[in-house]
């Protein structure tokens, strides 16, 4: 089994980078078994194709504009995962959603996708999370750990 936790976002823009901060904390606090791969995707696109190919399940952690109050944590799974194709001007916009679409094309799409989204408080130019989002980090990490447990893998905390 191959489970991937992917944190994405720009760590130079405060809460935009929350996904990356979550995977950093996950790597720090837990010893990860071989079947769990934790990736800091930053804001990259096609470079991730190789890493994301053929996963049994993909958990994406990202900042999310869902029209909710800042600091709201949202979980999307199954049919709720936004369709990867919204109105686009041209087929030249390769981001994470397009990497996933490309995996569909190559027949290597993940068996399932769960998204954990966090509504940002601040998108200012800063390498630190806003205090409100920073305080939420342990909750988000617990959610990811719970997701993995539902998929059959229990993480052990580093002593």
């Amino acid at each position: 089994m191959r489970l991937i936790v992917l944190g994405v976002g720009n760590t130079l823009l405060s809460d935009e980078g929350v996904g990356v901060r979550v995977v950093e904390k996950l790597q720090q606090d837990f010893s990860l078994p071989a079947e769990v791969e934790v990736i800091d995707g930053g804001t990259t696109g096609m470079e991730m194709l190789e890493d994301l190919a053929g996963a049994d399940h993909l958990i994406i952690v990202d900042a999310m504009f869902g029209g909710n109050a800042p600091g709201t944590i949202v979980r999307l799974a199954g049919d709720e995962v936004p369709v990867f194709f919204k109105t686009k001007l041209s087929p030249h916009q390769i981001g994470l959603s397009d990497v996933l679409a490309t995996l569909v094309l190559t027949g290597e799409q993940p068996g399932g996708v769960t998204i954990i989204g966090i509504q940002p408080v601040s998108m200012e130019l800063n390498m630190e999370l806003s205090p409100q989002i920073a305080a939420l980090l342990p909750d988000v990490v617990s959610l990811v750990v719970a997701e993995l447990a539902m998929l059959g893998v229990t993480l052990q905390e580093v002593a």
């Binding site: 720009n10 130079l12 994406i60 949202v74 919204k86 981001g95 940002p120």
Partner: peptide, 20 residues
């Protein structure tokens, strides 16, 4: 430069998004 990557649930009714 400065790619912003915020996932956008635009186009989906917000009511379908479960807030935890």
């Amino acid at each position: 430069a400065c790619a912003v990557h915020v996932l956008d649930t635009e186009g989906r009714p917000v009511v379908q998004v479960k807030a935890l």
